[in-house]
Nucleic acid binder design. Structure first.
Length: 285
DNA sequence: AACACCCCCTGTCGGC
DNA sequence: TGCCGACAGGGGGTGT
């Protein structure tokens, strides 16, 4: 489910509800998700106050008053729902794996059918050397991100640009949906080898500059739309994201290209084991 | 170093 | 109606 805009939407909601709240009780309804929960995770959270919630790539970093960090990844189907009081909680629902209670009576429920999510506790000061965070690439909405930085990351890559943009070691936060949309808007074929978008001297070609611009543009638009709801994504308040209405290619195999003057048909191919949707007529280069 | 492939897990949907 | 395979927003690990 969640790519950068969805994670950002969740971050906003969690921040609004939990900032300054003291965690009073944590219920763990199973041993772990994708990995076992770290020893003493509930204890590490209980009694702590949430002093901030950040995002790095598709990870949420819940900062606690003692300096430790509750690290969360939503995987494919992870979802938080916030309730203002225990009375609003509609009872235990299938796949509700973690339940957080705060001193003021709020409840945060983490539900994750496929259990590809991740939770961990990072000790104070150990953020930089965490194994899941260490190899992450460019943050696309940061000041450091531009066409030149992207060119530097892609230089020499012999994998298709579609695959390269999904590689979190190069640029983070993009997932299958947004990469398809970004390449379509940029007019670049998903089959183009990443390294071919960079000149020998390391300068980005025009098409790569377009991709860099569209990465930012699409992410900003999607965040403003509250993310994309495909089957069940929602904010912590239950609001649906409406960026899916803006999809030009994702999930549109066999349908006409929506480009202004394009008469092409959207195709689906498989790259790196995942579906790519694109228009072979207006995505050439 | 870079890439291809497999795996984790549950739910849904289309075809037969 | 039921069964079966394909597929789904992610990413780590292994082998080449």
């Amino acid at each position: 489910m969640p790519e950068l805009p969805e994670v950002e939407t969740v971050r906003n909601g969690l921040s609004r509800h939990l900032h300054g709240e003291r965690i009073s009780k944590v219920e763990l309804n199973r041993e772990g998700l994708r990995f076992p929960f770290p020893d003493g995770m509930a204890t590490a959270l209980e009694g702590r106050t949430v002093i901030g919630i950040d995002r790095r790539a598709k990870y949420l970093l819940v900062r606690l008053d003692a300096g430790s960090i509750w690290l969360i990844h939503l995987g494919m189907t992870g979802k938080f729902t916030l309730y203002n009081s225990i009375d609003e909680v509609p009872g235990q629902i299938k796949h509700d794996h973690v339940v957080i209670h705060t001193a003021s009576g709020k409840v945060a429920v983490y539900n994750d059918p496929r259990r590809f999510g991740i939770m961990d506790i990072i000790s104070p000061g150990a953020e930089d050397e965490h194994s899941l965070l260490g190899h992450l690439g460019l943050e696309p909405l940061s000041d450091e991100f531009d066409a030149l930085a992207l060119a530097s990351a892609l230089r020499g890559r012999r994998s298709p640009i579609k695959t390269a943009l999904l590689d979190q070691r190069l640029v983070v936060g993009l997932g299958n949906i947004y990469v398809c949309e970004i390449l379509h808007r940029s007019g670049v074929s998903p089959n183009t080898l990443a390294g071919e978008l960079v000149r020998k001297d390391g300068i980005p070609r025009v098409s790569l500059s377009r991709i860099a611009d569209e990465i930012r543009q699409v992410l900003v638009e999607a965040i403003e739309a509250g993310g994309s709801t495909i089957s069940d994504f929602a904010s912590v308040d239950g609001d649906l994201g409406y960026f899916a209405h803006s999809f030009q290619v994702y999930g549109r195999e066999g349908e006409p290209c929506l480009g202004k003057v394009c008469t092409g048909t959207i195709r689906r191919i498989v790259q790196g084991g995942r579906s790519t949707f694109y228009c072979s007529r207006c995505q050439r280069s």
